[in-house]
Design a protein around this nucleic acid. Structure first.
Lengths: 193, 193
DNA sequence: ATAAGCACTTGATAAATGACAAGAAATTAT
DNA sequence: ATAATTTCTTGTCATTTATCAAGTGCTTAT
């Protein structure tokens, strides 16, 4: 039950007292999942917030042609939360699945609500998490709308090179919004230089 | 000082008492802007949260070639808030500008903080707003990554047909991540059918 | 150890979209 | 009302990316 990585994540985001973090993470339970295992399935209602302590995972949808479109790649340490499903108790649109063996900490909506309304620092943390996530997503939309695939690939490589060692290229390709053959060609082109 | 549209926006999102909404919106001040006027400039730090009561506006960036990339289109009624700049007191990356004549209600971070920590219903509202915004943005990324321009155009037309009467097509084109000539051709193609 | 199944690459070709330029239409300013 | 400016459309051609199919190499299961 070593929650140090979970606790440190709070400290890494903003200044917060050790005791308060301890109180927040008190209710978190740990578990692990093997690689290629579904954490949360499409159409299910997410009842937990997850902290990914170790490993890589992703969320994806199946399009009309039954092709997997990776919507997000998660690399520890980070929170994994289907905001819409968790907070509005709606069915998820996407599938959350591990890529490598993963370890998690989870807590329920009930606990999140208690902390949110009773611990001012947790409120600030929650909001900060939203702000950061929103802002990242926003940058990604802008990139999608204005940069070509090669540029998006190079940016991802610069910003999250670790995923290239742990996530299959075809997953990365669909996350970038291109086919795996296009990504392969882009990589070939770049390696020439 | 008719805050009915502002107040109604709270009621439209979730059940909340009239008196509480009144308390929340107490500190909001109204103002208007002419068309094509900058509300918040790039590199400025956003000190206000805005509620767009009437009109259309957008956010955009200038890319390396000094081309405008529209990152978001806002149609009243809605909140307009540069989360990252407002909550983390960082310079904005984008320019917020009116498209039509607009009327706003604004309030300061100080007031938001007071409400956030003193009014449980406001906390819930704030979080809901984040959830909704995040989720919309997420849908947009998925669409960008997996649908072609024509499909994205048709979806936008279905979901926000009002903007086509009020926002220049070249703005909509760059919001969709395509050039204005491509959008023109897509529209021509569709009108044939 | 071997077979089966994935992941990745590569080739040929097609489809989608962009770049640039010119003109038409609409809007705005004088 | 007219000129100036901006928006939108259209043509031609280039670039980017997708599609499909085949082949190679790696990983996993038995």
């Amino acid at each position: 039950m070593d929650k140090s990585k979970l606790n440190n994540y709070f400290h890494s985001l903003f200044p917060i007292q050790k005791e308060i973090v301890g109180k927040i993470t008190e209710t978190f339970c740990g578990f692990t999942l093997d690689k290629n295992t579904t954490l949360l399935n499409k159409d299910a209602i997410s009842t937990k917030t997850y902290f990914l302590e170790k490993g890589y995972m992703r969320s994806y949808i199946l399009n009309e042609d039954n092709q997997e479109i990776t919507t997000n790649i998660y690399s520890a340490p980070c929170f994994v939360n289907d905001f819409l499903s968790f907070f509005k108790k709606q069915p998820t649109k996407v599938i959350y699945q591990t890529i490598t063996h993963c370890s998690f900490w989870e807590t329920s909506l009930e606990n999140v609500q208690k902390n949110f309304h009773n611990i001012p620092e947790f409120r600030e943390f929650s909001r900060l998490l939203f702000v950061i996530n929103y802002s990242k997503l926003n940058d990604r939309v802008i990139e999608m709308a204005s940069k070509k695939a090669e540029t998006r690939y190079l940016n991802l490589l610069k910003q999250q090179s670790n995923i290239f060692q742990n996530v299959p290229l075809k997953v990365i390709a669909s996350f970038l919004g291109i086919t795996d053959s296009s990504l392969s060609r882009i990589r070939k082109e770049i390696s020439k230089i």
